[in-house]
Each structure stands twice: as structure tokens, then as C-alpha cells.
């Protein structure tokens, strides 16, 4: 029996999960990754998913980003039931609605920084020249002016993460999904990266979901869902007036 967790806020619901389950494998080797997830993630907020390794965090963001099909339950992302979309339409939905920030950055080393950032626009059909120009404009706003033609491997870890953020934001997605965005960064860089991500969550028609183990950034969340053994066992609302939060 799952317990429904609702974040009581004025914001509309961006993502709604009801009794979502997911099992990998079959028979005796079957592993239940999600055992009935119920959560409403409001728009305009930053929600963190935390918990021990193997608790189902990665499976959960994969499902709500449309990368993985759920076995049971209900999922609506900005009103869209992802289960009704066929594979190609689901890919287009991701292309138009989701921005990804991966733990390993996944920047293609053979492409320039600007070309890496431009990939979502090119996937949407924009010309490479136009997409690269827009990528360079966005890189400037992230403090990476003049680095568009650099190779990603020539950048520091923090700069690479900012490039990954630029790639996730360039097509103005409604949902931003981040996997351990600060795990490879020191405290200061991690703080600055989270500022960028958090700035994104304030729009009322947007939502940000961050999977993290990094307790240094917990105070930047609007809410924190703690998962254990495929279930959300705690849903914590972060007070708006914490000293750390106030500092931001």
C-alpha cells in the first residue's frame, strides 16, 4: 500500500505519479526497483530525490523523463500521460520538453563546446550555424564567453558542467532532470552550478528534479523526497527562511 505524498503549495502540479512501479528481470531474478511511488511535484520548484544507492532514484528520474517505461501506476508530466506515446513520439516529446544534466557530463569530445550545446536545437531541426550561434550566446550568459570553439576536454570540470547545463537549457525545456550535478565539483563550483539550476526552477511553468547525494546542496531544494527500497519514505519541505537559503 503506497502512501501519497503531496507538496502543499500554491503552484500547479508539474509531475504526478500514482502508485508507479517498476521491476527489472523476471521470475526469481526479478528486482523491484520502484514499489509504488506516489508524489506530486509542483511546477516552479526544485525537487531533490535522495536516498541510498539502489533505492530507485535513477529509475524514478528515468521514468519521469520518459527514458524508461513504468510497469504500473499513473504518470503525468505537464498533463501528458507518457504511456500513451509511441517510441518515436516519446523521443520527440523528450526532445521538446526535457533537458538533461548527466553526472558524467557526456560532452562529445570530438565536437566543440558550442556544437555540444547546440545538439538539442539541431535535433529540433535548426541549422547547425544558427544553433551554434545561439549556443555561443547562451555560453556567454554562463560565463563561458569565447570558449565556444574549445574542445570540452580543454575545460575544467566546473566549466564542463556549465557547458552541460547550457546544453540542457538551450531549447528552453519545461522539465530539467539532473543526475548528481555536483558530484564531480568542489564546494564552491557545486554551489555556483546549483545557483544556475535553481534559477531555472523559479519559472511557474517549469520544474527541476535533481538526484543527489550531496548534502551541501540540500538547502537549495524546495522539497526533498527520500527514497528507500523503491518507496518514498519521507517528503521534506525545506523552510524558505534557512540561513543558507537566505544567503542565496
Amino acid at each position: 500500500m503506497s502512501t501519497q505524498h503531496t507538496i502543499v503549495e500554491a503552484h500547479p502540479i508539474a509531475i504526478r505519479l500514482r502508485n508507479v512501479t517498476k521491476t527489472f528481470g523476471r521470475g526469481e531474478s526479478a528486482v523491484a526497483a520502484l514499489r509504488g511511488i506516489d508524489i506530486d511535484i509542483p511546477a516552479g520548484e526544485l525537487t531533490m530525490l535522495v536516498g541510498p544507492s539502489g533505492c530507485g532514484k535513477t529509475t524514478l528520474i528515468s521514468i519521469l523523463a520518459g527514458l524508461l517505461a513504468r510497469d504500473g501506476g499513473e504518470l503525468r508530466v505537464f498533463g501528458q500521460d507518457l504511456a500513451t506515446l509511441k517510441r518515436d513520439r516519446l523521443a520527440r516529446w523528450r526532445r521538446d520538453n526535457v533537458g538533461f544534466i548527466f553526472q558524467q557530463f557526456n560532452l562529445v569530445p570530438q565536437l566543440t563546446v558550442a556544437e555540444n550545446v547546440s545538439v538539442p536545437l539541431v535535433l529540433q531541426g535548426e541549422s547547425v550555424a544558427s544553433a551554434v550561434r545561439r549556443a555561443n550566446e547562451l555560453l556567454e550568459t554562463l560565463g563561458l564567453e569565447g570558449r565556444g570553439k574549445s574542445a570540452p576536454l580543454n575545460l575544467s570540470g566546473g566549466q564542463q558542467q556549465r557547458v552541460a547545463i547550457a546544453r540542457a537549457l538551450i531549447h528552453d525545456p519545461r522539465l530539467l532532470v539532473c543526475d548528481e550535478p555536483t558530484s564531480a565539483l568542489d564546494a564552491e563550483l557545486g554551489r555556483r552550478v546549483m545557483e544556475l539550476i535553481r534559477g531555472r526552477s523559479t519559472s511557474p511553468d517549469r520544474a527541476v528534479v535533481v538526484v543527489t547525494h550531496d548534502d551541501r546542496i540540500f538547502h537549495l531544494a524546495d522539497s526533498i523526497a527520500h527514497l528507500d527500497d523503491g518507496r518514498i519514505d519521507q517528503l521534506h519541505r525545506v523552510p524558505r527562511d534557512t540561513p543558507a537559503r537566505a544567503a542565496h
Binding site: A65, L67, R87, D88, A91, R92, W93, R94, R95, D96, V98, F100, F102, Q104, N106, V108, V119, P120, L123, Q124
Partner: peptide
């Protein structure tokens, strides 16, 4: 070697055909 990048492209919405 490039599979992780193809995977990232796929996640970002690139079709299998592409």
C-alpha cells in the same frame, strides 16, 4: 566508444533512425 554519446543523443530525443 561513442555509445555513451549516442545514448545521450537518444535521451535528448534523437530517434533511432537518426
Amino acid at each position: 566508444d561513442n555509445l555513451r554519446y549516442f545514448g545521450a543523443f537518444k535521451a535528448m530525443g534523437a530517434s533511432t533512425r537518426t
